[in-house]
């Protein structure tokens, strides 16, 4: 175990940074949730819990559920695509792995907005995908792809896929081969080795990647605007609009506070489940 001093030295810069530039600023803002919106969008400093009673509204809950569903789908598909891809990269000759990883991330050094525009070109009814499918005779009528839930999920998977590939790769890279070989030597079939040995070892990586997609998706407000045609409201849009369009900071702060609480609970539940699955908790606690 680390000495108390060494542990503190590792934690100090980060704690200071987050204390000054995360805790204090967010506290300043979230305190607003107990005040009232001024007539012209300022803040009336009258102590109240009214914003929370307003937030307890089926309308806002339904938006949260809808967003959670979309973000959940995006997370699921991103993991399903990313795992085998990360596996393939981790299996490639070691000197090529860095290049393969950079190639995964490279498209995302262009700009979010123009990448999304590119998807609009691909997906619209007169778009390249519809024309391609029609040309080969797979469809007679153009499909409505753009401005749908499907398009939002697709856009989110696309933009956050590299995050999952990188995170899973970080868990897979230089995995202790002896464990895999031991399992194989003992006659376990490939899928069993994967399920019993590889997956548990990499589960924290999968979980971290999944968390990235989920939290980034649920807070996203550009993809639902452009690929969803703004017909589907997501939590990201809702909170953004409360602060900027409605200029109702107190209510926006209340909604954000509730969202943060719910997400924290989800994350802790997730972390506990992953620890169980990875079987690390027991091992850790057993250690002196």
């Amino acid at each position: 175990m680390l000495t108390r001093g060494a542990r503190l030295a590792y934690l100090a810069p980060g704690l200071l940074w987050l204390g000054a530039l995360l805790v204090v600023p967010c506290a300043i803002l979230l305190v607003n949730s107990f005040f009232l919106r001024g007539v012209y969008g300022g803040i009336d400093y009258i102590w109240t819990v009214e914003n929370y009673t307003r937030a307890a509204d089926w309308l806002y809950l339904s938006i949260f559920l809808k967003s959670a569903k979309i973000a959940g789908l995006a997370t699921l598909f991103a993991i399903l695509i990313a795992y085998p891809a990360a596996w393939a990269i981790a299996q490639a000759p070691r000197r090529r792995q860095a290049a393969l990883l950079v190639l995964v991330i490279l498209p995302f050094w262009s700009n979010y907005l123009i990448r999304t525009y590119a998807w609009m070109v691909l997906l619209n009814r007169e778009g390249l995908i519809n024309e391609g499918l029609e040309a080969v005779g797979l469809i007679g009528e153009p499909l409505t792809l753009l401005n749908t839930e499907f398009a939002i999920v697709l856009g989110l998977v696309y933009n956050y896929l590299p995050f999952v590939i990188l995170t899973i790769y970080a868990a897979l890279a230089r995995l202790d081969r002896s464990l895999i070989e031991a399992s194989q030597d003992l006659g376990a079939p490939g899928w069993r080795t994967f399920l019993r040995v590889v997956l548990p070892l990499t589960l924290p990586g999968v979980a971290a990647g999944g968390v990235f997609v989920f939290v980034l998706s649920i807070g996203n407000f550009i993809t639902p605007d452009l690929l969803g045609g703004q017909k589907i409201q997501m939590v990201g849009n809702l909170i953004y609009d409360q602060f900027l369009s409605a200029r109702d900071w107190p209510f926006g702060a209340a909604l954000a506070t509730v969202l943060i609480m719910v997400m924290m609970m989800l994350l802790f539940a997730q972390a506990i489940a992953v620890n169980r699955g990875a079987g690390r908790r027991e091992a850790r606690e057993a250690r002196p």
């Binding site: 309308l59 806002y60 339904s62 409201q233 849009n237 809702l238 109702d248 209510f251």
Partner: peptide
Amino acid sequence: QRDFSRKVTEVMA
């Protein structure tokens, strides 16, 4: 503004 914003959210959702 408040009632207006809620109605807009209702339409958008």
